[in-house]
Structures are given as structure tokens and as C-alpha cells.
Amino acid sequence: MIEIKDLTFAYEEKQVLKNISLDIPQGQFIAILGHNGSGKSTLARMMNALLVPDSGELLVNGVNTKDEARMMEIRRSVGMVFQNPDNQIVAAIVEEDVAFALENLGVESSEIRRRVDLALEEVGLSDYATHAPHYLSGGQKQRVAIAGVIAMQPNIIVLDEATAMLDPKGRRDILALVEDMHKKGKTIVYITHNMSEAIKADRVIVLDEGELVLDGTPREVYANTSAIVDAGLELPRPCQVTTALGLGVALDIDESVELINASK
């Protein structure tokens, strides 16, 4: 559970986040949408105490991120996956990288072994346990990063543009994995600028120039065509077609076909 109260943050002069208030209940799959520089990545880093608010609060499971003594507690309950698969893998062997967070937390060796094996199985990379990461594809590397997060057993997983550098196949694999983790009860914070990746989310919020401009289910949010264009985002193609035809929001191609057929 994440509670954000009146959060503001500035890098030097530039105001990056302005008066954000947001509650994310446990188990929710929330997508944070915004164009480059909208402040979405900064907000993600706030959730892991990598950054702390200038004013306002951010509470993770009731713990304030400003409480430095409890920083590790926050970081072990919020797993982060970043954009560049190459720059977040620390070890030169897949299983050692998955174990990295657990080693840092001082978990006992046999327990690390158990959790690493489980996590690799969950992301479907058990066969690659002893491989070197640089022989893996981008999608596979990202799954290694997710396995590292799963092994930590956090209840919140934040993905910061985790699919931005992947090919379509890698992207689909990661999205499937995210849905799977959501079904297992994890809170998912999915940060992206690609609106078609957010259709499976329970809830979508849109950030524009550091302000929270839209908040609702994908269907509700995607209906605000003009606000979305103002925020520098682009509706998924099927949705563009149906809204242009005045038929309302279609989240995927099948739905748009149905709407168009029904209108005949």
C-alpha cells in the first residue's frame, strides 16, 4: 500500500512534481502514464526512497520514506525494475544476479538458493541459471531483473519503463509476467508512455508537467481525448478509430471491431 500526500519535488529550479496526492491500495495494478519529463520516473523513485519529497509525504505500508532508519524495510517491500536491462544487472552470472538483493539483506544461503530457483522458474529462465547475462536477449535480461525482484518477495513491484527498450516479443513476455504477478496479489505500479500497455491495469493515472491530470479506470481515462492529447500522449490505435467515429472507447482491436459492427 502506498499513500502519497501533497507531494512536491524539484530538481534545482525545475519543479518536477506538484502537489501529488494518491493512494494505491494493496493488490492494485496501477499504470502511471506521462510523456518524457512528466515526472513519472521521479515519482517511481520516490516509492523506493531513492528520492524523498521536498514537501509532503510518501508512505509505503505505513512507513514514511523520510525515515532513514527504516529505508531498507521500504526497499525490500518495493521491488524496482528499470528501463535499461544492461544497466541493472550486477553479477556476471544470472543466478548470482537474482540473488543480489537477498545477499544484501543477509538472507541465509540455503534460503537464497530456494528463492532464486523459485524466482527463475517463475520467469521461465531456470535453464539459464548459470549463463552469463550478456548472452541473453533484452527481454530475457529484463526477466532476470524481475526474477531478482520476485526473489526479494516484495508486496509492491514498480516497473519504470521496463519494456521501453524491448522488441514486441520481449514486451509481451514482460506484460504477461506483470499480469501474473498481479494475480498473485502484488501491487503493480507500471510506468509507461505507451497507452496500449496500460489497458490491463485496474487504474490509470496521467501525469503532465508534474501534475496529476487524470485518474480512473482505463476506460474512464481514455475517454478524455483532449486531456490526453494535451498531456502529450497517444491513444491506442483501436481507441483512436472508435473515438474519431464517435463510438466511445475501445481498449483493443476486438472491442473496436464490435463497436463498429454494432454501429452499422
Binding site: L50, M80, V90, M152
Partner: peptide, 8 residues
């Protein structure tokens, strides 16, 4: 940053 996020 990634290492810090993973409790290093």
C-alpha cells in the same frame, strides 16, 4: 541506482 534499489 539499481544497486541501491536492491538494498545494496
Amino acid at each position: 541506482v539499481a544497486m541501491e534499489a536492491r538494498c545494496y
